[in-house]
Design a protein around this nucleic acid. Structure first.
Lengths: 209, 209
DNA sequence: AAGTGTGAACCTCTTCACAGCA
DNA sequence: TGCTGTGAAGAGGTTCACACTT
């Protein structure tokens, strides 16, 4: 189980989400081809993933819905519950805050940071906003170890550096600025503009079907 | 040039972004290892990508900054300017709207949709919001062909169907619900929860460095 | 000497194809 | 018979290594 591929982790997260759907929950067992249909993947992809986490079916009845969900949680959920810092409370930051909190229990955003004095010390979606100068102090005190960056592009690099110095070990960067935190932290970048440009490029091929 | 890989398209978008930075713009030429440093990739990765778009260096001086940027634009920008529809004006939808518009000229969100009567007919970031029942009508009339979905998870599938029927050929799905629009449209899914769960999982490995 | 352009090796991820099992 | 588990093949993407150019 040691080292699961990135793609497998992403898919496991998705499998669990649909397994926890009320409709699916009403069933005891599910076949790989049924789950495949729900997540729009091939059945053998799912079987390969489950193989990697050593989850086996109950004879030819398929997979035990409840047990599989539990099993995935055991593997992908952090051992102790995870605290997240959100840096940058612009539109995107606030959207992420309200989108994210209240959904997952194992992980939650517990502190937000901004430079704007109007925002500091206010509470957004039940999360307190601190001035960015308190970054290190609060992160250390609250033992936060992952962070989401939603500041303006120009500040991203500096913020990333400070986060690493504060002891952060995982960063999700929503900024269009590429940042570099190796070998101190694991990095996931999401560049919305690149995503949409890719979409525009490939959608051209679907023009006249 | 016919069929560039998805990853190459994403990177080209990023190369162009940093090439257009004021700091880089002040230089006439740039070496592959310099650009590599800016985007945190290996130089040979960049050379491979440029090879695919047949962009060559100016002797051993490196690549012409202006020309490379122009060249990338010629390849990845849509021929006629692209109109985008945004479906769902919740927090995330509004954030994307303000984040996106005013940045790129070649592409812009020209219509937004929601069910909430309070939002309909209002204007957000200079984009008019229509009722979702007018989806097909407006999309057809305005000749929009790509769409961003930011509605609540339960409605995603239905919205995707309607978008396809309205003639949309590219969809960016921000919903945690997997949707299926093959073979009518190109699909990019971005699942924020999966992203953060992946981050949490892999950041564990960086705990004590 | 210091860069590029590129075949070849390598690695990662997906799909195929089928033996084995309930 | 119908589904799973899995080795093997195949695609897709990245990195290496080096001949070539100015």
């Amino acid at each position: 189980m040691a080292n699961l591929p990135e793609k497998t982790i992403e898919r496991l997260s998705i499998y669990r989400k649909v397994l926890n759907n009320t409709i699916v929950q009403s069933r005891k067992y599910i076949f790989s081809h049924e789950l495949a249909k729900l997540v729009h993947l091939k059945p053998e992809q799912i079987r390969k993933d489950l193989m990697l986490i050593s989850h086996t079916s109950v004879g030819k009845k398929g997979y035990d819905v409840e047990k599989l969900s539990q099993n995935i949680s055991n593997i992908i959920d952090p051992k102790q519950s995870q605290k997240i810092a959100l840096v940058g409370l612009g539109n995107l930051g606030r959207a992420i805050l309200s989108y994210f909190n209240g959904k997952r229990s194992q992980m939650s955003i517990t502190a937000a940071f901004d430079i704007d004095p109007d925002k500091v010390n206010k509470v957004y979606a039940s999360v307190r906003c601190y001035h960015i100068d308190q970054l290190k102090e609060i992160i250390r005190k609250e033992e936060i170890n992952i962070a989401i960056i939603t500041v303006p592009a120009d500040n991203a690099e500096k913020v990333a550096e400070e986060l690493v110095l504060a002891g952060i070990r995982g960063i999700l960067n929503f900024t269009p600025t590429p940042i570099n935190v190796e070998p101190y932290a694991y990095l996931v970048e999401y560049d919305m503009i690149a995503s949409i440009e890719k979409l525009a490029y490939f959608s051209e091929k679907y023009k006249n079907n």
